[in-house]
Structures are given as C-alpha cells and as structure tokens.
Design a protein around this nucleic acid. Structure first.
Lengths: 255, 255
DNA sequence: CGGTCTCTTGAGCAGAGTCAATGAACGTGG
DNA sequence: CCACGTTCATTGACTCTGCTCAAGAGACCG
C-alpha cells in the first residue's frame, strides 16, 4: 500500500466521455486513496461487507460474484484496467456481492465518503461516474439475456466478443487477438455453464473455424462471423463512436 | 396525455431514502412532464430508441426486455408503481432494451434533459436518483445469479419472494398474499424457462405446500420456508430497515 | 358463437450436467 | 536437478433437467 501512482489516470478515464474542467480534475487527483496489490482470488470486498472505499483498477482483472446455497458461484461482472470496481455500491450501504482479483491486480482504493462528496459537489464528475455506473448496469442486463436465453455455444462466443472489445478499449489487445486471463471454470461461472461444457464448446467453436486458441489467447480468423454467430451487438457497451468504428472495421484484429 | 396528477408522488418516493429540501421538492414538482396511459404490451421505449423522457410508474406494472436472434425474449426487469422506468438510460444516449407495459399502466413521463439538469444541480436529488438506479442494478445482478445458477423450481420461488416484498413495499399487497399480473410465459421469460416448465414448477411448489395460487394471486402458508427454499435473501433489494423488519416478521402476510 | 389467449398436462427428446480419469504445466522443496 | 503436489485443460460415458411438440379446457371478447 503506497500512495505513489496518482489518480491522474482516473481523471483521464472520466474525461474520455464527459467534459471535465481543470478544477474537477484537480479535485479528483486530490482524493485520498491508497494503492493496493492483490494476488489472484484475493478479496477486494466480501459479500455483505460495508465498503469504505471505491477501487479503480490500474492493472489486472477483477470479478464480482455471488454464491448460491448449493455452493455454486455466479460471476456477475468482470472488470478490466480502467474500470471502477465498486460503483454499484457507492451509494448503498452494503455490498450484495463479493469482489475478487482474477489475476495479479493493482488498484487505487479511493475513500468512498470523499468520492461521494466530490460527485455530489461536481456535476461533471457526477455525470461521468453515473455514465460509468450505467454502462456497468447495461452489461449486467446483457448478461441476464446471455445466461437466460442463449444456448451454451452462443453464450461463450458472446462472452468472447464482449472481451474482444473491452480488452481493446482497455489497450490490452495486441492487434490480432486478446488474452483473457480466466480459467474455463470462471468462464463457466460467468455464463452459467460447467467448466466441462465450456471446454467442449470452445473446441466446437474452434472446429467451426470461428476461433483459434493458444492457451488463454484468443483469435478469430473472421471476427464479423463470430459476432454474427454470437448474436453480439456492441450497443450495450456504449463505446465511444470513434472506438467502435475502429473496432467494427477490424482495424485491430478482425481478419 | 394530461398534465393533471402532479409529481408530488415522485418527490415522496425520493424523500423516502434521502433527505430532500423543500427547494428540491419544488424543483421536482416543477419538472415538465406528461401523463401517459398504456394498455398491456404497449411500448414505452423501443430497443435502440433515443429516449427523450424518463417515466415514473403511477399505477400498473411494466417490464424491460431484449429479444435474441432465435426470437426468444428475456425480461431483464419488472417495474412496479413507484419505480422509475428509464433511469438506466438517463445518461446514456440509446436504450439497449425495450420497455413495455405489462398491465394497464399510468406513468408520468418526465422530460429527460430537465431531469438530468435537475439531478446535476441538486445534489440531494442526484443522490436519491443514484440510489434508485443502484437498486435497479442490484436486482439485475441477483437475476443473473437466479438465471445462471439456480434450478428451475428455485428460480421461480425466488421470483415470487422478490415480488412478495416489492409489491408489499409498493403498497399492493393486501395482507396475506399478492397479485402478480404476469402470464406464466412472462414469468418464464424473466427466469429463463419456458412457460410450460414454469407451469409444472408452480404446481410442484403448490404440491410441496409452499405456495397457494388463485389465478395470479399468490399466497404462502409459510413464508419463511418459501424464502429458505428459494435461497432468497432480501439484502439486494436494499429496503429501508423499518420496511424490512416489518416484512421479515410476517406482519403482512407471512403465516 | 367462434376466436384468441392462457393454463394445464402428457410423451418423448436432447442439451448440458455429473462423475471420472488422464495429461500438461508449473511451482516448490529436497 | 528432479520428485511431487496442485491447478487447469481435456475427453469419455452416462444421467437428468428442462425443452419441444401436441392437445384439451377455461375464460374472455367482439
């Protein structure tokens, strides 16, 4: 826990979608915070906890989950560098879900109360945070659809399409594919399948020529065709127009 | 569309969780709006539309849904009187989902831009709306879990438990049960099952003595036991303490 | 009184789960 | 440097939950 790397990157992130004044920016950077480093499966927040801070991911992946009575886990969200981890709980007292590191993780833990005050006193910041929270919720809704009404192979394809775009937006996609640092068990927990079935379905996608895998690195020879197969439309990610146009045209890693 | 019934009730709703000044209250009531009446399945917002207003339900039920390629529908949320319909889209340009009336519906359609301005200029209002949006999202997350990781009969029981509390909070629960004006097909679309299977599962719940049905009116002889069976914990509804205590003790309709 | 919508129930099927075993990759301690 | 334990990926055989197809019965409406 060192207070070294500043919150400039948080201000950057918020400024990407919303006009932020220099004054707002300074207020963001001045927020009290610590830097926290976690190992895979390390706990950021426990289910039922009263979070006193709101984390922002600097590097690594994290996920939110809930455990059902049978012991099964459902992952409700995966967060990438540049995502806020705790926005859903910022104005609710209790976390209704746990948050864990998926990989080695570095996060800026911003104290919640100052952040709430900042949001309420700075309309532009409020707006920017609100948009982030709204997108978080939009992804939740798409996941309900994915888990509820698509067959297994389409679900997994959809998950891959989502992360293709999100990793690209986070600057993690090298150009012709992306690394998705989830075990097949975690993928199953995200889309409501067992790890065994995820494995079979990944094989099927590969055999169909829609996907290439090397470990956890995923490529597609025909990105557009995978999106079609996956019933994937990126609207719910609410990406900035420029970004989306670039991705859609395949400037990054579509064939 | 008549501007008659005022927005006092919206101010009330927001004041239930957050302290709102008289000034805030006046600003809310002054928001430009119309009253709209819809028949079942009438459209409030189409998927892909650019909503220019944010509705608040005065009476009746509404739901949000998305259609997948196969033509199947997934309901992502059901809204009751006192719920905001469009909060998830307020600061996003496009609606990623459709919103329809489930029953005869009366809603106050508040113009979006003035509402946004109000929220940004009045911190207490922003906070109140943010909390509402956060609860909306919390329900989404619980639905992901329900659809992804619970077996059919538990899913349906969970849905019933949720609406037992939410209808009670909305003042719709008569005392010993509640009316849930959804067809079994809609229930299936909400929990990721077919109508046929919902029917079978409702029968099973009845035969287990956990549920009594008369048309769409649902009762339980042992509310606590149904909650246990349903793996239901009301935390995610973030009800006010007083409400929750009352419900939990069965002062309304638990046996 | 016919048409439509919803609920109900049966019979058979299949998609995804369970159980189990094997192998690869990796880290760790001797 | 190697033996071992752990985690993850992979594959097969079998099971079962929930789906599909189909048909009938009320209820309601024009």
């Amino acid at each position: 826990m060192s207070p070294s790397p500043g919150l400039e990157i948080v201000a950057e992130k918020l400024a990407r979608r919303t006009d932020i004044t220099q004054h707002d920016r300074a207020a963001i950077i001045a927020l009290p915070h610590t830097i926290s480093r976690l190992r895979p499966s390390g706990k950021l927040i426990g289910e039922g906890a009263h979070p006193s801070h709101c984390s922002f991911i600097l590097s690594g992946f994290a996920f939110r989950d809930k455990i059902v009575r049978s012991g099964a886990r459902q992952i409700t969200a995966v967060m990438l560098p540049g995502d806020f981890v705790d926005l859903p709980h910022l104005f609710l007292g209790i976390a209704d879900q746990g948050v864990h590191a998926m990989t080695d993780l570095v996060a800026a833990c911003i104290e919640a109360e100052p952040l709430r005050r900042l949001a309420l006193d700075h309309p532009a910041v409020a707006r920017a945070l609100w948009v982030e929270a709204s997108i978080d919720a939009a992804i939740n809704r798409e996941w309900i659809v994915n888990v509820g009404r698509r067959e297994a192979i389409v679900r997994v394809a959809h998950l891959l399409c989502e992360f293709a775009l999100r990793t690209a937006r986070a600057g993690l996609s090298g150009g012709d594919g992306f690394e998705l640092p989830m075990t097949q068990e975690q993928m199953g927990d995200a889309v409501g399948l067992t790890a065994v079935h995820v494995n079979r379905v990944l094989r099927a996608l590969t055999e169909m020529g829609l996907l290439k895998r090397e470990g956890r690195f995923y490529r597609s020879a025909d990105w557009k065709r995978l999106q079609d197969f996956a019933d994937f439309s990126p609207v719910y990610l609410y990406m900035e127009h420029a970004e989306l146009a670039a991705r859609q045209q395949g400037s990054r890693w579509a064939a």
